[in-house]
Design a protein around this nucleic acid. Structure first.
Lengths: 147, 147
DNA sequence: ACAAATTATATCGCATGCGATATAATTATG
DNA sequence: CATAATTATATCGCATGCGATATAATTTGT
């Protein structure tokens, strides 16, 4: 017992292992994603696009819990790599419609092995993985309600 | 069912909510830590120092799962703010002994309210928080064993 | 003892990630 | 219908966070 400073101990924090695990995961992905010429953040953007076919920046921001000042330059890089295209919505000129190029579509098959490679690194039981997933989404959803 | 692409769906990833929750937490801390003139990473460095009194960079790297290229400039900033001091170890000249200044010590009391403020934002049950903590450390420890 | 290996920090370049703010396009309002 | 409010992106400046690599100090092997 450390008295009044007890709650300030690193090992009594729940946020720290979350932060450290997130960093750890990004490091894990790096060698796998290097082969696709993607960073982790670029990868999750592509994941949304592979699934939905297209999206605007606002949808990507909401889906990925990121801000436009993160995504705007990132989307520029994905375009420079030739994976996506940005066109102005003819209906609403503020909207950027983001679509996959042929190269971007083709990348999907190259990415197929990534989730399994990552899953293998984690030594969680299926129950633990499910529980982690559930609790994390509860955290994230609680946040969205605050708005 | 989406067939072969099922595992590539964002909502089937366990890493994404971890990543998003970590970002979310850093955002939560920001307004609280602004009052201490600390960033989140600087805060966890201070936490280690408050607890141990002193440390070298290597110990901080291991404890916080960070690399020297993250910590070296960060420690420089903490020194510029007057919270820490760096002195060369007389026994081993490679070692940097990092200690708290008086201002750094005093900051500890100002930080006392932070953990509670953050905890209030999370609507997890005590069991969920405990389980999240346990699983995250299992993830992190599994990683350390890989080395 | 002295060159080679190891260890602890530091530097470089790049990619986020953020709050604050600016800009451009659309919608709401009197 | 003109202007104010809103909305979608974009820009700015700062602080990480990383792999790769360099530098300085110590230890090791012979």
């Amino acid at each position: 017992m450390d008295g009044k400073y007890e709650r300030l101990r690193l090992e009594n924090q729940i946020c720290f292992p979350l932060y450290a695990a997130s960093n750890m995961i990004t490091r894990k992905y790096k060698p796998l994603l290097d082969e696709l010429d993607l960073t982790y953040t670029q990868y999750i953007v592509m994941m949304v696009l592979w699934e939905r076919g297209q999206a605007n920046e606002k949808l990507l921001c909401e889906t990925l819990c990121l801000r436009s000042n993160t995504l705007t330059p990132l989307l520029k890089k994905l375009r420079d790599k030739g994976y996506i295209e940005k066109t102005k919505d003819k209906g609403d000129g503020r909207n950027l419609v983001i679509t996959l190029t042929k190269a971007g579509e083709e990348l999907r098959d190259k990415a197929l092995g990534v989730p399994e490679c990552i899953a293998k690194e984690f030594r969680l039981t299926p129950d633990e993985a499910t529980e982690l997933y559930r609790i994390l989404y509860k955290l994230l959803d609680g946040e969205k309600e605050n708005k």
